[in-house]
């Protein structure tokens, strides 16, 4: 497993922060909380965001969502590595979970951090039972999140943790699994007729054949 070197962390600008909680709701590693604004502190809002720096993995989701430009990324004098080592777990269990999810163990799930399906599965088996716990253990889901969100949710679901509670409760760093084509594949390896009828322009049969060919390689 390759480490992800965290070179930057978020920094809250208290006088700009309004305590709107959006940053708290999107942080993939739940590194942001709120504290009361002191009477002596200038700015609007009763609360100010507060960062737990060691849980900040430079995802920058907070910067993206902040409507008040109240968060900046600052370079660390001493970068730190995350996802460097994972706990030892039963390799057969890792294989079984990946198989159940339909992913090869070495399939790249989080492209930003180069985290493989087997590494996500290892984290889940060793106790990471929510997306944020997976992120904290592996570093995955701390980049663009455009690729890794669904497969991480799917692996969690296959491991029996599809009902993880949201953290924070009203947060939206993730919702549920999104529908896929693969979930509709029938035991005989075909798709139900309604899908072929709904999308006649798409080369569905060929897609399945070629994907299977690739998997066999």
């Amino acid at each position: 497993m390759l480490p992800k070197r965290v070179r930057m962390v978020a920094q809250i600008i208290p006088e700009k922060c309004t305590g709107c909680r959006l940053c708290e709701q999107v942080c993939p590693t739940v590194a942001i909380g709120m504290r009361p604004r002191l009477e002596s502190e200038p700015g609007k809002g009763r609360n100010i965001a507060i960062l737990e720096p060691e849980a900040c993995y430079n995802a920058q989701a907070c910067v993206e969502i902040c409507p008040d430009d109240a968060i900046e990324m600052v370079e660390l004098d001493e970068p730190f590595d995350v996802g460097f080592t994972l706990p030892q777990v039963d390799e057969d269990a890792v294989k079984a979970l990946c198989r159940k999810a339909g992913y090869g163990r070495n399939m790249q799930i989080c492209v930003c951090t180069d985290t493989k399906a087997g590494e996500i599965a290892t984290a889940i088996i060793s106790g990471a039972h929510s997306p944020e716990a997976v992120s904290l253990m592996t570093g995955a889901r701390t980049g663009c999140v455009e690729l890794c969100m669904q497969p991480i949710l799917h692996l969690l679901s296959c491991a029996g943790h599809g009902d993880a509670a949201r953290n924070p409760k009203n947060g939206f760093q993730w919702y549920g699994e999104s529908a896929t084509l693969w979930q509709h594949v029938q035991p005989d390896g075909t798709l139900p007729d309604f899908i072929a009828e709904a999308f006649p322009e798409y080369p569905l049969d060929k897609e399945f054949g070629d994907m299977a060919k690739l998997k066999r390689r």
Binding site: V145, E146, L147, M149, Q150, H154, S178, T180, W182, Q183
Partner: peptide, 9 residues
Amino acid sequence: ESRSAYHFG
């Protein structure tokens, strides 16, 4: 969720 399903699902 759906954007990543586009790529992985």
